[in-house]
Amino acid sequence: MRALNQTQVFGDKSSFAIEFTPSLESPFPKYGYVRLWLGQKPIINEDEVCYLPSFRSSIKYVLDKILLNPTTFHTSRFEGKSAQEIYKMLMQGRSIVNAKWTMGTPNPILGGLDDSVYFKHLLRLDETIDPYYIFLLSDEQSLTVLWKCADKHNCSPQEFGKLFAQTVPILYFSQVLKDFLTFFDS
């Protein structure tokens, strides 16, 4: 990775971008601050420094899944449903309320789908996004990101508990991920 002491932005913050700022506190170049931007809204735990090799691996994993199959984050049971309905189905599928339900078996709240649907759509990058539940939904042309901050100590009062959605062309989303990886690997 290039040794830069300035912030780099990959993509357009008004739709989707990854922002990287090297950590000046850390003597190691493997740490920095990473912020996702979705629809002009930053997603980050500002107090958390990111271990870049793990973040890079997670970005590569998401990109590889999209390149292999653009509809990898598609679930037909979500067709025709609003962002709110989809989010509720995903979250209820993992809720403690369903403690009597056995993981790996069809979950009635998920319309007969099993718990793998939650994990299929859940975006897991690193601890800097821990305050957020972020889900990816795709079709052949676009990718929709649903997110909600669930930690009132790490998000603004205007943001806490509110569901957001941002749809971007899947080719654009993939290109931003590729640009970040190219920078990281150079």
Score class of each variant (00 low, 15 high):
68 L>S: 07
97 V>A: 13
36 L>A: 02
47 D>I: 10
70 P>I: 04
72 T>Y: 06
95 S>G: 02
46 E>Y: 02
52 L>H: 03
110 L>A: 02
62 V>G: 08
71 T>Q: 01
86 I>G: 01
108 P>S: 08
68 L>R: 00
55 F>V: 13
97 V>P: 01
90 L>A: 03
74 H>P: 01
107 N>I: 05
34 V>A: 02
61 Y>L: 13
90 L>W: 04
109 I>S: 15
31 Y>S: 11
93 G>M: 01
62 V>K: 05
104 G>E: 10
60 K>W: 04
46 E>Q: 04
110 L>R: 01
48 E>F: 12
71 T>H: 02
103 M>V: 07
89 M>Y: 02
32 G>Y: 01
110 L>P: 00
27 P>D: 12
32 G>F: 02
76 S>Y: 11
71 T>R: 03
38 L>A: 08
66 I>S: 00
71 T>P: 00
92 Q>H: 14
66 I>Y: 00
111 G>A: 07
108 P>N: 07
61 Y>A: 10
41 K>A: 07
43 I>M: 12
65 K>I: 03
47 D>L: 11
109 I>H: 07
26 S>Q: 09
57 S>Q: 14
41 K>R: 13
108 P>V: 05
109 I>T: 02
46 E>V: 09
60 K>I: 06
57 S>P: 04
94 R>L: 07
74 H>T: 03
63 L>T: 10
107 N>P: 03
71 T>E: 00
26 S>N: 08
29 P>S: 14
55 F>L: 12
106 P>I: 05
95 S>T: 06
41 K>V: 15
42 P>S: 10
44 I>K: 08
94 R>T: 06
47 D>M: 05
35 R>F: 15
89 M>C: 10
47 D>F: 11
65 K>V: 08
60 K>H: 08
81 K>D: 03
55 F>K: 06
75 T>L: 11
72 T>D: 00
76 S>M: 06
29 P>M: 12
101 W>C: 12
78 F>M: 06
30 K>N: 11
52 L>I: 12
111 G>M: 14
104 G>V: 10
30 K>S: 12
89 M>A: 11
106 P>L: 07
98 N>P: 12
57 S>K: 15
61 Y>N: 11
42 P>D: 04
35 R>H: 07
111 G>C: 09
103 M>F: 10
50 C>Q: 04
58 S>V: 11
85 E>V: 08
51 Y>S: 03
91 M>G: 12
81 K>R: 14
43 I>P: 09
35 R>N: 12
92 Q>L: 13
33 Y>S: 10
73 F>T: 02
57 S>C: 08
41 K>E: 11
74 H>M: 03
